[in-house]
């Protein structure tokens, strides 16, 4: 496998071809915040918390580091005023469903009126159930702003109450809903 050299936050690092920026950064002890990422799952690229600034041949752009594969001579900046602004805005938009990230970014209130208080729709439960458990008991229902997490209508069949998704749940919806069904 080919080895690629790139620079992350001024640090020269080596990586295998096909690795993502996020993976390489973490291997090298460089922190990038994430929400919808989990090592057991295929990257989804949906939360956009992991946006970083890359430049290659002088062209700068923002990309989601969890799905962007490393390239030779890539220069990555994992933090900047612009990136912080985006991350703060995302946390503000998700308020109050992502308490840990809110604390990290010093967001203690939001200028927006929240519509969900338990679910940030990160999709970790859906993907875990499909990719790891291969049960597909939870799914995304609807689209656009109507999107929500839902159980397959005949819940009892697909769900085996392994409760493994409880640990992944950021906002607590799964714990509350599934927990009540379980009891």
């Amino acid at each position: 496998m080919k080895t690629i050299e790139l620079v992350i936050d001024g640090k020269k690092v080596q990586a295998e071809e096909g690795a993502t920026i996020l993976e390489v950064a973490r291997e090298n002890g460089i922190y990038i915040p994430t929400l919808c990422h989990d090592d057991q799952l295929q990257p989804a690229g949906t939360c956009r918390m992991c946006m970083v600034e890359i430049s290659n041949n002088g062209r700068k752009k923002l990309v989601a580091s969890c799905v962007y594969e490393v390239e030779e001579n890539l220069v990555v900046k994992t933090d900047s005023e612009k990136i912080r602004k985006i991350r703060r805005m995302i946390v503000e938009l998700l308020w109050p469903t992502v308490p840990a990230l809110a604390k990290e970014f010093g967001v203690d209130k939001s200028r927006f009126v929240p519509e969900h208080t338990e679910c940030c729709l990160c999709g970790l439960c859906v993907r875990y159930c499909a990719e790891v458990k291969k049960l597909n008991a939870v799914y995304f229902k609807g689209r656009g702003i109507d999107r929500e997490i839902a159980f397959v209508p005949e819940l009892a069949d697909e769900c085996v109450y392994c409760r493994e998704c409880f640990n992944l749940c950021v906002g607590g919806l799964i714990v509350n809903q599934c927990g009540s069904v379980y009891s």
Partner: peptide, 8 residues
């Protein structure tokens, strides 16, 4: 095909 996929 998983029921959930069809429902989605």
């Amino acid at each position: 095909i998983p029921y959930a996929n069809i429902y989605s």
